[in-house]
Amino acid sequence: MTRLGILSVAHLHAEGYVHNIRAIPGVELVGIADDDFARGRQFAAQFGLRLFDRYEALLEQRLDGAVICAENTRHRPLVELAAGAGAHVLCEKPLATTLPDAEAAIAACRRAEVELMVAFPMRFSAPLLEVKRVLDDGSLGRIYCCNGTNQGQNPHRHRAWFVNRALAGGGALSDHTVHLVDVMRWFFGSEVSEVYAQVNEIMPSGGDVESAGLVSLRFENGSFATIDCSWSRPASYPTWGGLTLEVIGERGVISSDAFRQIFTIYPERSPGVRWDHWGSDSNQAMIEEFVAAIREHRPPRVTGWDGYRAVEVVAAAYESARRGQPVRIAAHP
């Protein structure tokens, strides 16, 4: 039996992860803990889970793996705590909101000899895996550039901390840039070398963060890309948002939409049109990979280092937005 626990349920994804974990044979979801006890109690009751009053108490249950769904700026102490207790770690994205925090999280897991995985479910998206296959088999020829969008509704409606800079580390830019940065690094097999970004908060964020952002990236291999990370989907949008990616190569273009596999539903009574996704669940595949890495004593397909590189791009993007010019990222040895 593989024993997992969830450390903080601040992030909305914790709900989905409960279902994902329960769907895997031979995995036991031991329980949850949350520093916001009321939030933890409500979540535990809703999903029929055992609630521990302290993180340490949950970690004393000899967990094989800890899934961390805390507010962004609270990831680091929980990663350190879990690693110290010998649990492998799956940390919600972004890994951290500063480079020192990201480094510390990686170092803690290395010291404790546990694996650190970052929740980048798009690595497990069936449409994007198919794009990766096409890019790898060379049918597009050399890859020149990429146009990506990861737009969404303002998450403020579901969780207020997303628009609180002290807890989230930033707004749309830190929330939505990291997924596509990770996908592009994976697709290109190359690191980001330069970042340009512009942001604004014309659409009220509800807090003290930017609600719209456009990012331009250059990669070490000479290719380039843009990312639209804006919370530009209104409350009436038929779904939470989406992720699209168009790749332009020597022999043509491949256009992908990770969440296009939908029904359009037009209810007689409820207020609006709705899109329901029927495609494969990438979160399920991601959690299964975490469990498989634990069982097979190997690194997961997405590591803390991938999380670090995404945090690095976001930090450079904020600096660029402040300065109005592109910012270089030094090559790592």
Partner: peptide
């Protein structure tokens, strides 16, 4: 950024631009 400048040998034209408007909107 444009493929003309990033990869001139490819002979392809594809460009992605970011505009900042006076009142802060971005395109």
């Amino acid at each position: 950024r444009s493929t003309r400048d990033a990869a001139p040998q490819g002979g392809l034209d594809h460009a992605l631009a970011i505009l900042t408007h006076r009142d802060g909107a971005i395109s």
